[in-house]
Each structure stands twice: as C-alpha cells, then as structure tokens.
Write a protein that binds this DNA or RNA. Structure first.
Length: 206
DNA sequence: TACCAGGTCCTCG
DNA sequence: CGAGGACATGGT
C-alpha cells in the first residue's frame, strides 16, 4: 500500500485526532504517567472500560507512582476492576510503578532521558509490558518516534493486502515509509484506531 | 445469550 | 519455538 497516501485518506475521512497531547500539558510528568497506566489497562480491553478505571483512580487520588506503588493490592484491584483482568492488571501496575521507583528513584520523567533503544529494552523487561504497551508508552507518554502496532493496525494492513508474521516487521514497514516524526506517528496511529472502530461498528450493523 | 474489545505471560510438547 | 490457554469486565 501507499502508506503516505493512506494517511491522507484517513485524515480526510476522520479529521484531526490529536490524542493525548502529553507534551503540551502543564504537568507533563503526571500526564505521561497517566498515559502509561492507560497503556497497561487497555490490554485487550475496550477504551471505554479503561476510562472508567482511570476515573476511579483519579477520584481516589491514585494516579501517581507513589500512590500505586504503596497501595494495598486489593484496594488497587477494586479501583481498576472495570478494565477487566483486574487482578492481573493491578499487579502489573504495581510492578511497573515499583520498577520506575527503584530504577529512577521515583523520578518518572528521567526514564525518558535515556537512549531510545535501551529504554525500549528496559520497558520490555518489565513483566506485563509487551511490545505494544511499551511502544504506546514510548510514543504517547515519551514523545518518541516509535510506530505503535495493535490489532487495528494489523487489520488495516490486511485490508490493504499487507501481512507479516512478526510485530516488528509491521513497525519497520511503517517507519521506513513515513517521515520519522512523533506527531505524525501519533496521529497516524490514532487515525487507524478511528478507522478500526468504524469497521467494527459497520460489521455489527450488517 | 454470545461475542468482542487498542495483549501478555505461562505451560507444555 | 509455537500452539493453546488463562486472565474478566462492560457494551451490543
């Protein structure tokens, strides 16, 4: 497929998405942390359910490294319950928070100051953080130029006759065909999600 | 009622 | 490795 052209097609069809402008928020650290939490909670789960969980965390004043790290597990489980797999996810949130606390002395933002490649490796070493989750964190929280591949992206590719076996092949496919710019990657992925949602809506309407 | 949703990890052969 | 299963809620 013509990856550049398909971007324009999506852009005309769905308009500007501008997901989570973390870099333009007053408290960049807080917004980035929330983005990372969202990335874990959304694993194989609808965003709608994730939003409820994030709202619960916010109301409980629990959207911080320290809060999640020190909270009792059952309490955290009940706060993220609506996101599904809630025992597993509560544990993953804790693992992630503890990792950052130990590795960076609780200075969450410092994490994104190291070289991209080693940072990605590091994220992947955390239990509960796989490639899509790591890349979402890098792209949307860290503002790093990494193209995120998810179920929608694979479906989008397939619809255009492009199929690979491996996750990283998809990533490479996009990255070598569009300008290496964070904003562009963010917007493109968001547009693919918009496309994917419309597809599933249409399917159920048939 | 059944099926799906922006994955990841573990186990077994 | 690689296939298969577990994890769980909320919406349609």
């Amino acid at each position: 497929m013509n990856v550049r052209r398909e971007y324009e097609v999506l852009r005309r069809r769905f308009g500007v998405q501008r997901w989570w402008p973390v870099q333009e928020t007053p408290d960049v650290g807080a917004a980035a942390f929330e983005m990372c939490i969202g990335a874990i909670l959304t694993q194989n789960t609808s965003w709608q359910n994730v939003e409820k969980a994030i709202e619960s965390l916010r109301r409980a004043n629990a959207l911080s490294l320290h809060a999640i790290g020190s909270m009792r597990l059952p309490r955290l489980q009940s706060l993220v319950r609506s996101s599904g797999y809630y025992r597993q996810k509560a544990k993953r949130l804790k693992t992630f928070s503890r990792f950052v606390t130990e590795r960076y002395g609780g200075n969450f933002k410092m994490m994104f100051h190291q070289p991209l490649k080693s940072l990605r490796e590091e994220l992947l070493s955390i239990n509960g953080v796989g490639r899509e989750t790591a890349d979402s964190m890098l792209l949307y929280a860290g503002g790093k130029p990494i193209f995120v591949i998810d179920a929608y992206t694979r479906r989008f590719c397939k619809a255009h006759g492009v199929v690979f076996d491996d996750y990283d092949d998809y990533r490479q496919y996009f990255e070598e065909r569009v300008p290496k710019r964070t904003r562009f990657y963010q917007e493109y992925h968001a547009l693919i999600v918009a496309w994917g949602k419309e597809q599933s809506k249409r399917k159920t309407a048939r």
